[in-house]
Design a protein around this nucleic acid. Structure first.
Length: 471
RNA sequence: GUCCCGUUCGUCUAGCCAGGUCUAGGACACCGGGUUUUCAUCCCGGCAACAGGGGUUCGAAUCCCCUACGGGACGCCA
């Protein structure tokens, strides 16, 4: 049995769509699963919209998702060139073959493929004109997902335009023959086209590859009908990149679009994906892309990351902000993240959640202001807290040391627990009403910052002034 | 219009090919309760589906047919 050779053949449009990424991923997974080759071929025949920038979007997206290619741009291979724009000579050679064998003919300056069978003329209500049709023999498309699909073509079609450029159907087949592609894995929107392709393979006397037509990804009903397009919200890989999603999580979520491991698992590492994936197990029915599911899977990844790795992803998210220094101390960063990691479900939320660890200029939550500001009890509690905390030496500024200090505070006021002081202290030192666990937060923040902020709060008109609190 | 593909909870899906173990399982979302100093975490519980009809069969989500609905293709776009 010959090795599997699959290809992803995108047209660089400047966008890397979730649907394209899924097609690429399924090809890639199938190649890795079978030990075959994954080929990247660039369909850049439409010169007008194919720029280098557009190609970069594609290659960068592929790399971000961790898909490498065995042959293609920048890596070469034995069946190149891998840009269709550079394969003109090959197409001409193949076109001549068909012209010689009589399976192609010229008409109106273009070259057409000749179907075999009885010809007749008929009014076509879709094209709204009389057209020549052919009763050609149906061809069988061997589809790994749908089984055999039998379909007949009824009209000759163009192989080469009057301006000399070859058409998609033609170059696609020629390239698949030349590159010895064994399995064509692509979107279901190509299924009806495939009978044309099979006709061409046969006309060239080439072996017909297996096909696997992937179910379409439909847009969210709130965005209209039909398949998801690049204009739909959440449909571009780039968007998740910008929102600091973990690439492995995005890849995992994309893999679940029309495929699943048949058990109840959803979070699968790349090795498991490769081991379990088989194109024959792909769903037949179309799916609707669910951004919430994507976020959830991303969250699962975020939770399970070791803090060193988490910090690696988090650092640029923070240093991107004006209030965060570029040379953020790694040890401090990791200590902050250790107490924040399991409290937030997306890296997008990290800056707002943790700003007060990095600057004195942090905002005060209006909800907290409403709750605490201008109330005598607030200042009283802060003063009581300050009195106790400033007696805690630096060496005892630890979880245990602080717990002892708070126990003393509670005891002094005849309380069992120091909880009544905590929310107001939290607000004074962080500007927030919620956040990481309280005592660990004070430990990470450090003695100096906490005392400084407590004193500042006691002095601050925002806390003491009843007028400003009500405004 | 013609041809092709599809149809299980609101959403993603398991089960279907090899009919009984399915009073249809899981996940997301949602709702309720609990834990917690706060909380976006966590725990427990709940909601909710075999598109409709006919047939085959002792028995059908599973096999067959029809209808409906959804989608795709029908370009000198890819």
């Amino acid at each position: 049995m010959s090795t599997v050779r699959v290809r992803f053949a995108p047209s660089p449009t400047g966008f890397f769509h979730i649907g394209s990424a899924r097609t690429a991923l399924f090809n890639w997974l199938y190649a890795r699963h079978t030990g075959g080759q994954f080929i990247l071929r660039i369909e850049d025949t439409d010169a007008a919209r194919n720029t280098e920038e557009a190609l970069n979007v594609l290659l960068a997206g592929m790399r971000w998702l961790g898909m490498d290619w065995d042959e293609g741009p920048e890596v070469g291979g034995d069946y190149g060139p891998y840009y269709q724009s550079q394969r003109g000579d090959i197409y001409r050679k193949y076109l001549d073959k068909l012209l010689e064998s009589g399976r192609a003919y010229e008409k109106d300056g273009a070259v057409w493929f000749r179907l075999l069978g009885e010809r007749y003329t008929e009014y076509d209500s879709y094209l709204e004109q009389e057209v020549e049709k052919v009763r050609s023999e149906a061809v069988t498309i061997k589809d790994l997902i749908r089984g055999d699909v039998v379909r007949a073509e009824s009209r000759d079609f163009v192989l080469c335009r009057s301006d000399g450029s070859p058409t998609f159907h033609f170059v696609n087949v020629v390239d698949d023959i030349e590159m010895k592609i064994t399995h064509v894995i692509r979107g279901e929107d190509h299924l009806s086209n495939t009978s044309k392709h099979v006709e061409l393979f046969k006309a060239f006397g080439a072996p017909v590859p297996y096909f696997a037509h992937l179910p379409l990804i439909l847009k969210d009903p709130s965005q209209g009908k039909g398949k998801m397009s690049k204009r739909d919200k959440g449909s571009l890989v780039e968007e998740y990149q910008k929102r600091h999603f973990i690439p492995a999580a995005v890849r995992n979520a994309i893999a679940l679009l029309g495929w699943n491991p048949k058990d109840d698992r959803e979070v699968l590492e790349i090795g498991e994906l490769i081991e379990l994936f088989d194109v024959a197990d792909v769903q037949k029915g179309a799916a609707r892309f669910d951004e919430q599911k994507m976020s959830h899977i991303n969250f699962e990844y975020l939770k399970s990351l070791p803090v060193e790795t988490y910090a690696w992803f988090a650092r640029p998210v923070l240093t991107d902000r004006p209030w965060c220094s570029e040379d953020l101390d790694e040890d401090y960063l990791q200590r902050v993240l250790t107490i924040c990691q399991d409290k937030i479900n997306s890296l997008e939320d990290l800056p707002n959640f943790s700003i007060y660890f990095f600057t004195e200029d942090f905002p005060l939550d209006p909800k907290g202001l409403k709750k605490f500001a201008g109330k005598p009890a607030t200042i009283e509690k802060l003063q009581q807290a300050l009195a106790v905390l400033q007696d805690v030496p630096k060496a005892d500024w630890t979880q245990a040391g602080l717990e002892q200090a708070f126990a003393r505070l509670a005891e002094t006021h005849g309380m069992d627990k120091p909880f009544p002081w905590w929310p107001v202290i939290r607000f004074a030192v962080s500007g927030c009403t919620g956040g990481p666990d309280f005592v660990p937060m004070l430990v990470v923040l450090g003695r100096d910052r906490v005392l400084l902020r407590l004193r500042a709060a006691i002095e601050s008109p925002e806390f003491t002034d009843v007028e400003s609190a009500q405004s």
